[in-house]
Design a protein around this nucleic acid. Structure first.
Lengths: 219, 219
DNA sequence: TAATTGCCTCACCGTCTGGTGACAATTGTT
DNA sequence: AACAATTGTCACCAGACGGTGAGGCAATTA
């Protein structure tokens, strides 16, 4: 391997900017933050470390320690930023569809959630991280994400209530889990629990199946 | 850290067996294989490498290259072994329960699958691996696992057929995905999609929710 | 102009990793 | 007994990692 993308970025920074990149602390902090986010999104939590981030940000790794107190602080910053992911990435209009019942709502939310998850590399990596490691950092990130998610559902719920006799909390967790697992494994290696997911038609089938589960769960 | 478990194992091998461990190739191969399995189960695919495995097996890493052709061959061996995991770990009797419909069957299979997954560290690690990396090795492992899974479902199905108008393939994938995601994230950090899963009662609620999804999906 | 402050880079440390070539020790065969 | 083949160990390599102390450079203040 001769040219990694980080090499190219570093070259770009130093070649097109012979002026040594105006000394601006907050700008450098942002560069580090964005480098970390994009690296995590592209490469996953394996190989997610100080050296790689500094390379990509085009600065010295020392700055990561100085500005964020090391990887821990940086991860926390990313996690905190992710707590508002749902509101930022999922549209909150019903999309020209009638939402009359609690089931309609969950059905619609699942559809939107799957779509958003398909587009967002970073979020998928974070979810994969959560079920692969159990360090305090990743637990904090998971907690922030969960906070955002349930606040979002609560906001969207409005005055709608689930039918009696249904454990809505557990049911929604199961449905969300289904959506996550399908999207993650389908995108990572083209299969979801043994069935191939390549074409848009395959995706539509799975989306429909998940929505149908929600629909039937809430009568 | 003074004593890792691998150190203890190595000591055990050399202390209790002052005779230098009879030169037996097939036994050594098995030791390596078991060391790899247990390491993967305990520590996950991070830190799953030649050095750690050799340490745990109490032999030189060179033997991994000689006998398995390196990590690739070893991983393939583990994957092949995993293709028969379901039959080996999930009881195939209905458990004193009446299985009359296709829905009954899937409901029961999901329950068994969740229970088995809760007990099996290795399988959970492999599933987490599958959605975290996309190397040829892990793809082969995933493929072997999927093969075993669908063959198992097919075997259990017998003459039962899903009701008309239901995409059983996609629905089952969604249900299996829900089960997997819930078990993995609950065990890894005590939360499943934002809700805490600590007590056996929490588990029962989620199990019930998943089974209920299956029940309602197949009318 | 001189000194202080803040921003940043450099060089280095110890440790671990995957990988390989050379060698020792045991076994089986002639 | 002498040999060859198998089995296992050891030492070493280059490269990456996280982490840190010292010092260079630029802007502000004295």
């Amino acid at each position: 391997m001769v040219h990694t993308s980080s090499d190219q970025e570093a070259m770009l920074d130093t070649v097109t900017n012979p002026i040594p990149l105006t000394r601006d602390r907050s700008a450098t902090e942002r560069r580090i933050f964005e480098a970390a986010r994009s690296l995590l999104a592209e490469a996953g939590f394996q190989g997610f470390g100080v050296n790689a981030i500094a390379r990509r940000a085009g600065c010295d790794k020392q700055l990561i320690y100085r500005y964020y107190g090391g990887m821990d602080g940086l991860i926390d910053a990313i996690g905190e930023d992710l707590s508002s992911w749902v509101e930022a990435h999922v549209p909150d209009d019903p999309g020209g569809r009638f939402i009359l019942t609690y089931g309609d709502l969950i059905e619609r939310l699942l559809e939107l959630y799957m779509r958003a998850l398909r587009e967002d590399h970073l979020m998928r990596r974070v979810i994969a991280w959560e079920i692969s490691e159990s360090t305090p950092q990743v637990r904090r990130v998971a907690e922030a994400r969960a906070r955002g998610l349930s606040a979002w559902i609560e906001k969207m719920r409005g005055s709608l209530t689930p039918p009696k006799g249904v454990d809505a909390i557990a049911t929604n967790a199961a449905l969300m889990g289904a959506a996550q697992q399908i999207v993650l494994s389908a995108i990572m290696n083209g299969f979801a629990c043994g069935i191939p997911v390549k074409t848009e038609k395959d995706w539509a089938k799975l989306e429909a199946a998940v929505c149908r589960l929600a629909h039937n769960a809430y009568i």
